[in-house]
Design a protein around this nucleic acid. Structure first.
Length: 309
DNA sequence: GCGTCCAGGTCTACC
DNA sequence: GGTAGACCTGGACGC
């Protein structure tokens, strides 16, 4: 056991910390798993690239939260967690956010036959970081729609700071559905700066808190992806892009989750910077079948991986 | 500093 | 089923 101290303003908090070690999948790259898409940049995640540490705070009970710090240690992951946090809870949370149990062999085999994507398997690409709950990913996804990344970051930070449970070290978790459901649309408009999304946030939170919407059930759903997508589209504020983005975080990559950034990126890489139709983009990745969304994402972010290598 | 314009994805009304 | 316009914010730009 060790003590770790955190500094908040003029206050120093000491926390009893215990280390756990987790086995890694055969193909795994810590930086690529963390930085494979933008989630690591949103609270309650924080990433120290130089120290190679991913920190995440999540709710463990009503109004209580815990912060874990994850870092690579040879062929394992070292997870520093508060002593009070059960080992299985820490392990399952890390496994879930870094998708340690997800098998990407089939995708890597397909990518291996494509000169443009053959690099993906060797670098453990495609392991998209996700949150501890589907609800958190759902709300964050709504916050990515129709705005700049800086605004997304601001909305998510405001939500976490305003409504998230605080852990003993002072960090805050993403708020629960119940905490969010207790607030009005005006709160989301005026305090969170969510604009017209405020009604969606309030409605979704109320739906989840009341049990009318069950995001967690989507993770283990037996529904075929098109049917599950229809379920997601019933949620106010979730359109085609958002539904397909969420499906990726649920481990289903049939959809491309095209947004303006991806369209522009595709045009630059494959169409001499000229705009193209979504149909043409879909046709380009059709050979990847149920992995096409992941193939598109890896193709469009290939230089992120090469920059880090 | 102020005003204007624009990008961004979803919803709703309308055809 | 397809399309136009509204929604709201922050950033860029011109004055």
């Amino acid at each position: 056991m060790q003590f770790v101290f955190f500094v908040f303003g003029n206050t120093i908090a000491y926390v009893n910390v215990k280390n756990h070690y987790l086995k890694l999948p055969p193909v795994f790259d810590f930086e690529n798993a963390v930085c494979g898409h933008g989630w690591y940049d949103l609270p309650p995640f924080s990433f120290d690239a130089d120290g190679r540490k991913l920190r995440y705070t999540f709710s463990i009970a009503e109004k209580r939260a815990a912060t874990i710090t994850i870092q690579p240690s040879k062929d394992r992951l070292k997870v520093a967690a508060p002593e009070e946090l059960r080992r299985d809870v820490a392990a399952s949370t890390v496994s879930r956010i870094l998708r340690l149990d997800e098998g990407l062999d089939e995708f890597y085999a397909l990518a291996g036959g494509d000169p443009g994507l053959a690099w993906a398997a060797g670098r453990g690409a495609g392991r998209l970081l996700r949150s501890a709950t589907v609800f958190e990913d759902l709300i964050k996804t709504i916050c990515t729609t129709n705005c700049s990344w800086s605004l997304t970051r601001k909305m998510v930070a405001n939500l976490t700071e305003s409504l998230g449970a605080e852990c003993s070290a002072g960090n805050r978790a993403f708020p629960t559905a119940e905490a969010m459901a207790a607030e009005s649309p005006d709160f989301y408009r005026n305090e969170i700066r969510a604009g017209y999304r405020s009604d969606y946030l309030a409605e979704v939170a109320e739906g989840v808190a009341s049990g009318r919407i069950e995001p967690e059930s989507w993770l283990a759903s037996d529904l075929p992806t098109p049917e599950l997508k229809r379920e997601l589209l019933k949620v106010k504020g979730i359109g085609t892009y958002a539904a397909e983005h969420l499906l990726k975080l649920l481990g289903r990559y049939d959809g491309l989750a095209l947004d303006s950034w991806l369209r522009a990126r595709y045009a630059a890489k494959h169409n001499r910077n000229r705009p193209t139709t979504d149909k043409k983009i879909a046709s380009h990745y059709k050979k990847y079948g149920k992995w096409q969304g992941l193939a598109l994402w890896c193709d469009m972010t290939a230089d992120w991986f090469s920059e880090k290598s």
